[in-house]
Design a protein around this nucleic acid. Structure first.
Length: 610
RNA sequence: GGGCCGGUAGCUCAGUCCGGCAGAGCGUCUGGCUUUUAACCAGACGGUCGCGUGUUCAAAUCGCGCCCGGCCCGCCA
């Protein structure tokens, strides 16, 4: 990883890169995009998670061989976010990318534990403009007690009261939403509270170690952060002020019993060698905290804190989590790739003398072409999205190449669903596809859908949206059947499951207000203004229906005939029908639809009587 | 300014690791389903593969230079 290598001759470089001994290839978070050059053609996987799993296996095999790892220990995959506000769809990367790697490793016979940290000891730095309640409703800051929140700037999330009053704390509230999201997508995770890990002592040994070796810690970090002076007095610990409850950065002295650990060069079993007997403490002064534009004022209190009463700065906290939780793999967003990953890797190796996990960068995606932003209102909660599409469709989205920036388009969700449906049909061999598509579908589909069943039925998403025009389940089913979307011999469970999509698609049509957003106006007749010929034609059609015309095909044909008889352009006549029944210019295939409604209503409406 | 990732049809994306005729779906257009709309069937249209250059018999693919977008190099995650 040394930059000095750049001047070496190219041949030597190539040899070094492919040596595969825990060097560059494995810890480069971008290796997915490059291939790791280890085995040529055989190494190429159609699914990125297989390539990652290879690297995780290489890591654990090497560590078992060198005695640094117990073969019976489960593989640990971690993700984590700060519960600072609405956890949006982008945060699902942290869950799903890890999940796919976990699933592949389980398939290969490994025991895998997927942990997820709520980094909830982080301080609230600014007030989010938008919050969310536990039912998935977005709530404006003005609707909660913003003043109470404002007084808690600088406090750890877990020390701030829940603005909704339903959870133990602000942090707990948003961590609960994360847990709900994971559950809704059927991702089994161990959700860990960072605060709890500090309080129960999980981080104590590594924190103490970092304080004992704060000279080295400072020196390493200074390579990455200009604000840290290698010879200065930076201390990698932020105590919580006992007086005002804010996190503070000013540590005035450190008291650790350095005799408690002697064998710092023994790398085996980090926790084992980092047992402590005497409580370590730091003295601090509660000074101002710079948070972006604004300053959070300190109270000036001078006090003493134990190592459980504060937190490590992020650049150290991350590698500390790897060590304390024995993390083998962690995906992270591209914002970390050139910042905290290189420093974290260096801190793990140079300061903690521990091997960092296998890394993987994922690209961010946008929502309808714009970056996620809770302040701009451009957010989508997982629960919201799952009202529009099935979980498997969302899981499919995250099975795609993580290195590509993508747009999650709610406007064009039908495209994503169509793509998923095609993916599914390719898996079941129902349609022809390229070899690449087949290989991808065969590999990935079973990881996306928990119980593949060739008898399942998928209504096309846009057709399902069309069926959303009526709330009547029997009409939905009949139309789907007569239009040939449901086979006669379909089992009942498959029919029910297929029709469930109507609820999703209907919610989508309503949310976007697109061309599929129409509903039968049963209660009252929409405003209308027809010329005499159209009126007469409608009366004529009403008579046809009143006389028993309820065959879908015949009725559809009769609409054309009636229009012709009265010299009304066919398009205009259909438009009249859509106006009367949907208050719209367009709608579903009218004959088939009217044939399903109760006759008296149709006749009266055609006569403009109700 | 330096580093990193991305850029392929109107849209969403495969293909780039390993060079071999530029692909799919959707959309659009035309026709069909004995009479526009969703679906279905057939066909058509649609591309300087960001730009340039080098290597090669051959480059979307490999090298170099550049352009555009994003991220990092302050804080925070």
């Amino acid at each position: 990883m040394s930059a000095d290598d750049a001047t070496a001759d190219p041949g030597a470089d190539a040899a070094a890169d492919s040596s595969g001994e825990g060097g560059a290839a494995e810890t480069n978070p971008y290796t997915l995009q490059r291939g790791d050059g280890e085995g040529g053609a055989d190494d190429h996987h159609v699914f990125w998670a297989d390539a990652v799993a290879d690297r995780v296996e290489t890591r654990i095999e090497r560590r078992i061989e060198s005695g640094e790892r117990d073969p019976d220990d489960p593989i640990v995959i971690k993700g984590g976010i700060s519960p600072s506000g609405v956890p949006h769809l982008g945060n699902v990367n942290e869950l799903m990318r890890g999940y796919f790697v976990a699933a592949v490793l389980r398939e290969r016979g490994h025991e895998v534990r997927q942990v997820f940290t709520a980094d909830d000891r982080d301080p609230l730095r600014k007030l989010p403009r938008t919050l969310a309640d536990l039912d998935g409703n977005l709530v404006d800051l003005g609707e909660v007690n913003a003043g109470a929140l404002g007084r808690n700037l600088g406090h750890p999330y877990t020390d701030i009261p829940d603005p909704f009053g339903c959870c133990d704390s602000y942090g707990d509230h948003f961590a609960t939403i994360i847990a709900q999201s994971a559950d809704a997508m059927d991702i089994p995770i161990d959700l860990l509270s960072n605060t709890a890990l500090y309080e129960d002592g999980t981080f104590e040994a590594v924190t103490r170690y970092l304080l004992e070796h704060r000279d080295r810690a400072r020196e390493v970090l200074s390579d990455y952060q200009d604000s840290v002076d290698a010879d200065g007095d930076y201390v990698p610990f932020n105590p919580i002020c006992a007086n005002c409850g804010k996190l503070t950065e000013t540590v005035t002295s450190v008291d650790v019993d350095s005799e408690a650990r002697s064998a710092s060069n023994s790398r085996a079993g980090s926790e084992a060698t980092r047992e402590t007997t005497t409580a370590a403490t730091v003295d601090y002064e509660c000074t101002d905290l710079e948070a972006g534009e604004q300053t959070i004022e300190g109270c000036g209190h001078e006090g003493t804190a134990t190592l459980r009463e504060g937190k490590l700065p992020w650049r150290f906290e991350w590698p500390a989590q790897w060590e304390a939780l024995d993390v083998d793999f962690e995906p992270f967003g591209k914002d970390h790739a050139e910042g905290s990953w290189p420093s974290g890797e260096d801190i793990a190796r140079t300061v903690l003398e521990n091997e960092p996990p296998v890394p993987m960068v994922y690209e961010w995606f946008t929502l309808d072409g714009e970056p996620f932003s809770s302040s701009e209102g451009n957010v989508a909660l997982v629960s919201e999205v799952l009202e529009l599409i099935e979980p498997e469709v969302l899981r499919y989205f995250f099975a795609k190449d993580p290195s590509k920036a993508r747009d999650f388009s709610i406007e064009r969700l039908d495209q994503l669903v169509d793509e998923f449906d095609r993916f599914e049909r390719i898996y079941f061999g129902e349609i022809d596809a390229s070899e690449d598509e087949k290989r991808f579908a065969e590999r990935v589909y079973p990881l996306v859908v928990s119980e593949p069943d060739p008898d399942r039925i998928r209504l096309s998403y846009t057709f399902a949206a069309v069926l959303g025009m009526t709330e009547e389940p029997s009409i939905r089913e009949e139309i789907a059947r007569t239009e040939g979307h449901i086979p006669d011999d379909a089992p009942e469970w498959a029919v029910d499951a297929a029709l469930d999509r109507v609820e999703h698609a209907q919610a989508w049509a309503r949310r976007t207000g697109n061309e599929f957003d129409y509903e039968l106006k049963r209660a009252a007749i929409p405003a209308h203004d027809f010329d005499d010929a159209t009126g007469a034609a409608l009366d004529d059609l009403a008579d046809f229906v009143a006389d028993g015309g309820d065959d879908p095909e015949e009725l559809q044909g009769e609409i054309y005939e009636t229009a012709k008889r009265h010299d009304v352009p066919v398009g205009d006549f259909f438009a009249a029908g859509y106006r009367l029944f949907f208050d719209d210019e367009q709608g579903p295939k009218l004959g088939q639809f009217l044939a399903k409604l109760d006759r008296d209503f149709v006749v009266d409406r055609l006569r403009r009587e109700r």
